[in-house]
Design a protein around this nucleic acid. Structure first.
Length: 428
DNA sequence: GCGATCAGGT
DNA sequence: CACACCTGATCGC
């Protein structure tokens, strides 16, 4: 990529093919209804959402990438003018609706771009993704892994989403008479809301634009814009703060805030907080801040929970992902504001040419084992032998050790400053 | 008046 | 903390 041929989640002119992993704003900086720099490859669901996110977008530019099958692409080398053939495949990224990773196979080797992704160890989708990736890579090394390194730090530890979803349902049922507000963004966490809706057999309120998204995603029964139908509301993230929660409590009655987020969940927070169960990650806060003016409503100490429901992989999941793939090289894709952790700071020992070959060798050994097992008429092991530790490799002079500040300014510049104008049109 | 970018907020 | 946004100011046209 970056050779003037393929761009992933980058929208400046000069590429021959543009790939979109998912429709969050930090991956669409530069996209707009007027964008027309070239063909845009994305998942079917993402394509469905594009007109809503970018009104006026020229839909003839869209190239739908069906998940799981190989697609081919023929481009022209900008330097030599000769033809360059690629094959690529989309894999479910489990981050938000429509989100995918892209695996590219070309003359210059294999590249995997994860976009944002969640790699929950025991989920069926991950199991499928694992098989698809290993099968797609075959005996080749993965040359470059562009990695969602949002939580690429051992301090970040949180449970699978299902666990967090159950915690949230518990919180809601333990406050049977209170209103509940759950801050969400314009796309993502639908599975959480659906889970709550089904577990409690109630509809969930969303704002009108969000209902339109829900309908596009195929959810017709579980969401409503009628306040009177439910006590559980998913509200725009930007409209939520301790002040708004306090106001809700003062003017609308008892309201609990539940923040589903992966962010503050480092191991340092795990124990010794004021939440009931010490094993639980749930953080409960009493927001009794009283910033003047209305004052003295002592009764309105509002309840606010933070629950580790994350759409990004935690550290151990990233580790497992890298141990599976053993890439030659890893590059982080996060465009964070204040710091950039090079994935090789923690995972340098899992990449490099030797490690990549190690993976291939593992696969060959595994297949050889299967063959022998068949001959010996022994039941083959159905599970993959997951590579353990294996930190033999000495890092011979990888220069990117430690925290890199200089890259940040570059990444920031690439990802800043989108304004998504919400569709004017009404639902239906 | 418009889109693109930036500053600053949740 | 820093997710994935938001609003509002400013720049260039």
């Amino acid at each position: 990529m970056e050779s003037g041929m393929i761009s992933v989640d980058r929208w400046t002119a000069g590429s021959q093919a543009y790939f979109l992993t998912h429709l969050h704003a930090d991956h669409t900086a530069g996209l707009s209804g007027a964008w027309r720099h070239g063909p845009l490859f994305c998942s079917r669901l993402t394509a469905k959402l594009i007109p809503c996110k970018f009104p006026g977008f020229d839909l003839s530019l869209l190239r739908i990438v069906d998940i799981g099958s190989w697609h081919s692409l023929s481009l022209t080398s900008p330097s030599s003018g000769s033809r360059v053939d690629f094959a690529f495949k989309a894999i479910d990224a489990q981050h938000c609706p429509g989100s995918v990773m892209y695996l590219f196979r070309g003359e210059s080797g294999c590249t995997l771009h994860t976009g944002d992704f969640r790699w929950e160890t025991s989920s069926l989708s991950t199991e499928n993704g694992r098989a698809v990736l290993l099968d797609a890579l075959k005996d080749q090394t993965l040359d470059t892994l562009y990695l969602d390194n949002t939580y690429c730090n051992p301090d970040y530890s949180f449970p699978p989403r299902e666990v967090a979803a159950k915690q949230i349902v518990e919180i809601i049922t333990s406050h049977p008479n209170d209103d509940i507000v759950i801050p969400i963004y314009s796309l993502g966490k639908e599975d959480l809301l659906l889970y709550i809706s089904q577990a409690l057999n109630m509809k969930i309120w969303v704002w009108p634009e969000r209902l339109q998204i829900m309908h596009l995603l195929g959810f017709h029964e579980n969401f409503t814009t009628q306040t009177s139908l439910t006590r559980v509301r998913a509200i725009p993230h930007y409209s939520f703060s301790s002040d708004t929660l306090k106001e809700l409590n003062e003017f609308h009655g008892p309201t609990i805030g539940i923040m589903p987020s992966g962010m503050p969940w480092s191991v340092a927070w795990k124990d010794g907080n004021m939440s009931g169960g010490s094993a639980s990650h749930v953080k409960k806060k009493e927001c009794s801040r009283n910033t003047g003016s209305l004052g003295r409503n002592l009764e309105s100490a509002t309840k606010y929970y933070e629950v580790p429901y994350s759409t990004h992989s935690c550290y151990s999941e990233i580790q497992e992902f890298i141990e599976l793939l053993r890439p030659v090289n890893i590059k982080g894709i996060v465009s964070s504001r204040s710091c950039y952790i090079d994935p090789r700071y923690y995972f340098g020992h899992l990449c490099g040419p030797e490690q990549a070959l190690w993976r291939v060798q593992q696969k060959l050994d595994y297949e050889e084992g299967l063959r022998r097992a068949e001959v010996a008429d022994i039941k083959p092991v159905t599970e993959y032998v997951t590579p353990v530790a294996g930190r033999k490799r000495k890092n011979d002079h990888i220069e990117f050790f430690g925290i890199r500040i200089s890259r940040v300014s570059l990444l920031r510049r690439l990802s800043r400053g989108v304004r998504i104008t919400e569709s004017e049109s009404l639902p239906e």
